[in-house]
Nucleic acid binder design. Structure first.
Lengths: 225, 225
DNA sequence: CACCGTGATGACACTGAGTATTGTCAATAC
DNA sequence: GTATTGACAATACTCAGTGTCATCACGGTG
């Protein structure tokens, strides 16, 4: 259409003004004026000034939630990696906007706080999903918490690297690497299929003393009480 | 002294009023009036309404920072666990206040956001410290990010459990368990001392097929590229 | 064509957080 | 005794966010 949606015009006006004049210096009136609507209309589309910077977070969160829920215990790991890829893909799709927002968020504490809060919402989602997946196994809550935190941290690390590099390279190989790392690290979280068919690998240095071997074994056993 | 510090009176008045009348329903004027000072005095002691709920976060953060900086690469793990214990100890010291705040934060989204932001600051601190510690090793940034996230997640999991239980039990054994778990999980993050003297443990199910063993080994190797 | 319901928008008023400025008073220094 | 400093109060201001009501465009209906 000739005139893009009001919602989109508002978001664009907001980011442009924040960029030009600074966040605190820009009033909602300014944004509404630039978008050619009234102040009240702004608040009809966005609950707050910050909201205009993160227009589609709720949608994305719902998408991730849906992807996680559309899986069984057998496909949990795939669901998690898929969900993370969805999020990253969302940033990559609109690299222009993502980069501008990244620079903006870096300069405005209020926006940084907002972003951190939304990251926490993803982490909570993953935690709940993984918690259900692991339910019944020992330390399920703890493990779910740790794995959710790691998954989200891995995503953020890759995303930040991509943003800092100016959104130039393809971030999915790094993401796969990072997620592979997380999954390998947490592989022993998976519930043993039938309790007897586990495969575990151990190697010993030929020069290792029996004491050193014992300590390694104790550490290993100590982590699964 | 007969009259406690104004700062303390303000914080107490704030939490009391938030408890009685709700957060949004309480104005800064109310808080100041209850503390027997003027509105402007409130803002002299706290930058915002939320600040009054988390009076000593900055101090605690500085303490943690100091503890981390007062360590070398050799003692990094001890420093991390110590730092986490400092934080938990701070909550336990004043269980009364911690519990009241926990209930309050659970009900007020604005406070929850604030708390999440301060958790992020701890995580950042740990990430930087661990990053320096691992500097030079492959994937140092990624590993630092993951371990910091896990350490913080472990702490929060234990803290939440303690708070939900009403602050009754001693949370340090659970913390040790959780941290032990994290450290065991990330043990292979430690840089090998001299590259040849590692001790690694591997066990195989007697019924495992050679293929299963090979897969396990490949997974193991895949996590250290 | 006149009428009517509906949904989007604007105009406006109000509350309250946070800031900045200025004034006042008391303690301490000199 | 006077000057300086610092803690607090008083006041006015900006602006985010909420709520209410009027207006206008519109599509359908009689």
């Amino acid at each position: 259409m000739a005139t893009p949606s009001i919602s989109h015009r508002l978001a664009e006006a907001a980011v442009a003004l924040f960029d030009e004049n600074g966040y605190d210096e820009t009033t909602v009136d300014d944004i509404a004026a630039r978008a050619g609507v009234s102040r009240s209309t702004f608040f009809r589309y966005y609950r707050s000034k910050e909201d205009a910077v993160f227009p589609d977070h709720d949608t994305l969160l719902a998408t991730v939630d849906a992807r996680l829920r559309a899986s069984t215990a057998d496909t949990a790991i795939v669901a998690v990696t898929d969900a993370v890829r969805i999020v990253l893909a969302h940033y990559v799709e609109d690299a222009e906007v993502s980069l501008r927002r990244y620079r903006l968020v870096g300069r405005v504490p209020a926006l940084r706080a907002r972003e951190i809060a939304s990251v926490a919402r993803y982490q909570r989602l993953f935690r709940e999903f993984i918690g259900e997946w692991l339910a019944g196994s020992p330390d399920a809550d703890l493990r779910a918490e740790l794995m959710a935190a790691s998954v989200v941290a891995a995503h953020n690390q890759v995303l930040r690297g991509w943003l800092r590099a100016g959104g130039t390279h393809d971030p999915f190989p790094p993401l796969d690497h990072a997620l592979g790392y997380v999954i390998a690290t947490f592989r022993h979280l998976e519930r043993p299929q039938d309790g007897k068919d586990q495969v575990v690998v151990a190697t010993f240095s030929r020069s290792a003393s029996p004491q050193a071997v014992m300590e390694a074994i104790q550490d290993h056993l100590g982590s699964r009480p």
